[in-house]
């Protein structure tokens, strides 16, 4: 394996040696990658909601609305980040059975998962999850519906800001709408491996 390293690097050096000049790294303005619509973007919160709906995600206005939404679809068994549950439970009636530990041996028992979102991106309707703030990667992924609870001040304007905010968390994932595929005849189907429903709940 050490031999492979030397072999590859020496072949790379050998391949590049005949080049008289190497292509230089071009300088560019980060604003170049902003889509046209960004130039006259209005209220980021409204824009986020529009973009998330465009990818079939949903925004819950508050905790009571979230509980109503889950109840209306018959999703009463779920997982919730233990740090978030005390603030939410008052809005959830006795018909809910919510656990604060995600038991992977009963993965099919959880209809929804509520975890903290590290941020959101208005430009794309993206929810950002990071290891530091996600109580359980599986709890945010395996249930049919995922609710990300995001602090309003963590809403970012666009992808260039989101890239700048990646930081040193070992694992950051941007989730833009529900899990989907178009592998079968190009027909869009949601909920392949991850959530079939993606909900954002903003809090102060």
């Amino acid at each position: 394996m050490a031999d492979d390293r030397e072999e590859i690097l020496s072949r790379v050096r050998g391949a590049l040696a005949p080049l008289k000049e190497r292509a230089r790294m071009p300088e560019y303005d980060g604003g170049l990658v902003l889509a046209r619509s960004r130039r006259d973007a209005g209220d980021p919160m409204a824009e986020f909601a529009v973009r998330l709906r465009a990818v079939n995600g949903e925004v819950a206005a508050d905790a009571a609305a979230l509980a109503a939404l889950l109840r209306a679809r018959g999703w009463t068994r779920g997982y919730c980040d233990p740090a978030l549950w005390p603030g939410l439970r008052a809005h959830f009636g006795p018909e809910f059975r919510v656990e604060t530990a995600f038991d992977r041996t009963r993965v099919d028992d959880f209809q929804f998962g509520i975890t903290r979102g590290a941020g959101a991106v208005a430009e794309t309707g993206t929810i950002i999850l990071a290891d530091a703030t996600t109580s359980s990667r599986l709890g945010a992924l395996a249930p049919w519906a995922h609710v990300a609870v995001i602090s309003r001040r963590d809403l970012l304007s666009d992808l260039t800001q989101a890239v700048a905010a990646l930081g040193s968390d070992p694992n950051v994932i941007w989730c833009t709408g529900p899990s989907k595929t178009a592998d079968v005849e190009g027909i869009l189907i949601e909920g392949v491996h991850g959530p079939g429903v993606q909900i954002a709940l903003f809090v102060d």
Binding site: F102, D131, A132, L166, N171, S179, K180
Partner: peptide
């Protein structure tokens, strides 16, 4: 698509305190 659904950025093994991964 404007952006793919999942873009995952990985620096290393899971964070301490993260139960999964």
């Amino acid at each position: 698509q404007q952006l793919s659904v999942y873009n995952e950025f990985i620096l290393g093994p899971r964070a301490p305190g993260q139960p999964d991964g």
